[in-house]
Simulated assay, not measured.
Amino acid sequence: MPEAATPIALSSPPASTVAAVSPVTRRPRGLGPHALLAISWAAPLILLVAWESFARLGALSPQVLPAPSKVFATALKLIEQGRLISDLGASLLRAVAGFLIGGGIGFGLGTLVGFSRLAEALFDRSVQMVRAVPFLAALPLVIVWFGVDEGGKVFLVSLGVMFPIYINTVLGIRQVDPKLVELGRVSGLSSWTLIRRIILPGALPSILAGVRYALAVAWLALVIAETIATNSGIGSLAMDAREFLQTDVIVLTIVIYAGIGVASDAIARALERRLLAWHPNYAKGAR
């Protein structure tokens, strides 16, 4: 009689192996969140100190690249004159209006195309064709349509914002695990509940990635939009400075755009942490 087969003992993989293949980015040992924050700001601060040092030593001409201290003094002067705050407010208003309009259209159209192959056949090819048109190529037509009023500037920002949110919304909906959808149907969930509880939360990481990218595109579109004849906004401030060769003002506008970009990205990250607290890759301590 043949001997009974000896069962093979199943053992779990070593902890080191599990950690190596974990999809979650882990924090280096011994470094807390405050240390990581300090490291992330170290490179910009070193660059700033080097910039100031080279300018003071005369290696950088003030007409080419003024020192950060000179740029800061220029900012204080413009604030005292009341120009910087009003121009910044005008640019922020255009960016917010364009983002809300373009983001709403992109999300709505992306949701429709993500759920319906018929909607994809109707809209997607046209959207992709318009997306390939550069901002500068569309600028003359925008001037013909809207003139030099605020509508043209908001339109360009909306146009730029719409595409990242549209594409990432479609991608997020299409990438939801079909097994989860089937499980929801078997559990008796209605179509609306299925969309609200399973599909949209599953697509949310991709949608929020589109929001982060759209925030950067919004400022790029705004810079181009404010080159249209205008007497307010950060772009207008830069154009006036170019006419009078005020390099310090031009550098200041670049720094303002960079600062707003960092602030908007930080807001988007905070939104991710709040809305995706249930997701293991976004949970507290996962990064």
Results as ranks from 00 to 15, higher is better:
74 T>R: 15
111 T>P: 03
179 K>Q: 15
40 S>P: 00
217 V>M: 13
279 H>R: 02
19 A>E: 14
68 P>E: 07
21 V>Q: 11
32 G>E: 02
113 V>F: 03
125 R>E: 10
112 L>R: 08
70 K>E: 15
104 G>L: 06
173 I>K: 01
264 S>N: 09
183 L>Y: 03
275 L>E: 04
206 S>R: 11
108 G>S: 15
188 G>P: 03
114 G>K: 09
253 T>I: 05
11 S>R: 12
285 G>M: 12
26 R>D: 05
85 I>M: 12
116 S>A: 09
203 A>P: 02
156 L>V: 10
233 G>Y: 09
117 R>N: 15
282 Y>C: 03
89 G>I: 05
277 A>Q: 05
83 R>N: 02
123 F>Q: 03
34 H>S: 13
227 T>Q: 14
58 G>W: 02
23 P>L: 04
136 L>P: 02
139 L>I: 09
8 I>F: 01
214 A>R: 07
124 D>S: 12
220 L>D: 01
92 L>S: 11
150 E>I: 13
38 A>E: 09
252 L>T: 04
280 P>N: 11
79 I>H: 05
62 P>L: 07
117 R>Q: 13
214 A>Y: 10
153 K>W: 06
102 G>F: 04
135 F>C: 04
235 G>V: 04
262 V>W: 12
201 P>T: 05
191 S>H: 12
208 L>W: 10
79 I>M: 14
145 W>Q: 05
152 G>W: 07
268 A>M: 08
115 F>Q: 10
248 D>M: 04
74 T>L: 06
35 A>I: 01
160 G>K: 01
105 I>T: 04
55 A>W: 00
230 T>L: 10
247 T>Q: 01
281 N>P: 00
24 V>M: 06
70 K>S: 15
25 T>L: 13
270 A>I: 08
283 A>Y: 11
163 F>P: 01
73 A>F: 10
129 M>W: 03
